[in-house]
Simulated assay, not measured.
Amino acid sequence: MEADPAADLTMAWSGPAGASLSWTETGISAGNTGNIGSIKQSRLDVATSSGVGIVATGSAVRPAGVLRVAGTGGTFRLRWAQTVSSGTPTIIKAGSWVRLTRIV
């Protein structure tokens, strides 16, 4: 992904009724404008948003977690936005993906 380093990225998830998600964002700490810095790995719930640092030329953010669903169907969705408003667009690049593995 690419963005204005001052804008950073805030992510959260939404899921169907009864779904629970324990996740971490796994990215550099928000406010970091270089390729080095602290790695952020908070323990978050499905609707809890979290910000990570973005560098202009490309950043990797590797969210991971465990999703549990109940009997209600619905959409599981990544929600994201710039943490700080910027005229420079935040781009999640083509080819980005999320993998879900069913555990029985």
Score class of each variant (00 low, 15 high):
T10K: 07
I36Y: 01
T90L: 13
S86E: 08
A60C: 06
A81M: 08
K93T: 14
L21F: 10
D45M: 08
G71K: 05
A17G: 12
N35M: 09
G95F: 10
T57D: 15
K93L: 14
S14Y: 00
T75R: 03
V84E: 10
I28H: 12
A6S: 14
I103F: 10
S22E: 09
G65C: 08
M1S: 12
T101W: 05
P16T: 08
I54E: 04
R79Q: 13
W97Y: 14
N35W: 04
W97H: 08
S96N: 05
R43G: 08
P5W: 05
G51T: 15
N32E: 05
I39F: 07
A64Q: 12
P63E: 11
V46E: 06
V84W: 03
L44N: 10
T26F: 12
G18E: 05
I54K: 09
V61M: 06
M1G: 08
S38A: 11
R79H: 14
M1T: 13
A60D: 12
P16M: 10
E25G: 11
V69F: 11
T24K: 07
M11R: 01
T57A: 11
L67M: 08
T101F: 03
V98M: 15
A17M: 00
W80N: 00
F76H: 06
G58Q: 03
T24M: 14
W80Q: 04
V52G: 06
A64K: 11
W80T: 02
L9M: 13
Q82S: 08
I39E: 02
G31P: 07
T26V: 12
S50Y: 13
G65W: 12
S59N: 06
S20L: 11
Q82L: 10
A3C: 11
R99P: 03
G71S: 14
V66M: 07
I91L: 12
V61C: 09
S86T: 02
G18A: 07
R99H: 09
D4W: 07
R99A: 13
G31V: 02
L100E: 05
V52N: 01
G31T: 00
A94P: 10
S59R: 04
V46I: 15
S42Q: 15
D4F: 08
K93M: 13
S20Y: 03
G65Q: 06
V52C: 02
V46W: 00
G73H: 05
T33W: 00
G87W: 01
G65K: 02
G31W: 01
R102V: 13
S38P: 03
S86C: 04
Q41G: 05
D8F: 00
I91W: 10
G87M: 01
T24W: 09
G31D: 02
L9C: 12
R68V: 15
A3T: 03
I39G: 03
G65A: 02
M11A: 09
I36S: 10
N32D: 00
R68D: 12
I91Y: 09
I39R: 07
W97L: 13
L44C: 00
V66P: 01
V55I: 15
N35T: 14
R43F: 12
T48D: 14
V55D: 03
